[in-house]
Amino acid sequence: MNTLLKRQLLRGLLLAACLPGVAMAASIQALNYSSREVDYIAVENPGNTNSGGGGDSIRPYGQGGSICCFSVPEKWHADLKVVVVYQLSPDPTFHRETVSVPQYPDGKSGDIWLIVYEDGSVGAVVSLYGPSRPEWPGKIKGYPVPTKEYRDERRKEKIKREKAVLHSMENALDGDVSDLTPVELMRLKGAIEYSKKLINILEENDK
Rank of each mutant, 00 (worst) to 15 (best):
D176L: 07
G120V: 00
R151L: 15
P90H: 05
D176F: 08
S132V: 00
V116Q: 06
Q63A: 10
A124K: 08
K6V: 00
W113T: 00
Q8P: 03
I112M: 09
S121C: 03
A78F: 09
S71L: 03
Y150V: 00
P92K: 10
S34K: 07
L166G: 03
G130R: 14
L173S: 07
R36D: 10
D106Q: 15
N48D: 15
A191R: 11
S195E: 12
T147Y: 09
V38P: 06
L4V: 05
E44G: 03
E193L: 08
R154V: 05
G107Y: 10
S51Q: 08
I58K: 09
K158C: 00
Y86R: 04
H95D: 01
R133A: 11
I67E: 10
L31S: 03
Y61N: 06
E184K: 03
I159C: 05
M24K: 15
M1L: 09
T181M: 05
G110N: 04
R96V: 01
M1V: 03
D174E: 13
K81C: 03
G175Q: 11
P146H: 13
V183F: 06
Q29M: 13
A26P: 09
I140Q: 14
K158P: 00
P105H: 07
R36Q: 10
Y117S: 04
P137Y: 04
M24E: 11
S71G: 09
N48V: 02
K139R: 15
S178L: 12
S66V: 01
K81G: 01
K163G: 02
E184D: 07
L14I: 02
Q8S: 11
D179W: 14
E97G: 02
R133T: 05
L10E: 14
Q87T: 02
M186N: 05
A42Y: 06
Y143K: 12
S66Y: 14
G62N: 09
S66C: 02
L128A: 14
Q8M: 14
V165N: 12
G175T: 01
E203R: 10
E203Q: 12
G175C: 06
V99Q: 08
L173Y: 08
P60T: 00
Q103V: 00
Q8H: 15
A78V: 03
N48I: 05
W76Y: 13
P144H: 08
V165S: 11
S71K: 08
S51L: 05
A17V: 00
E170N: 06
L173V: 01
D152N: 13
G55I: 01
V122A: 04
T49Y: 14
E37A: 07
Y194Q: 09
A164W: 13
G175V: 01
A164S: 13
Q103R: 15
D91G: 05
G21D: 10
V99R: 10
L128D: 12
F70K: 07
A23K: 15
V126E: 06
Y150A: 00
K197E: 12
Q63I: 01
G130L: 14
S178C: 08
K189F: 02
A23P: 09
A42T: 00
K207W: 10
N50L: 15
E74N: 12
D56F: 07
M186C: 01
A26E: 05
E170M: 13
Y150W: 15
P131F: 08
P134N: 10
V38N: 07
S27R: 13
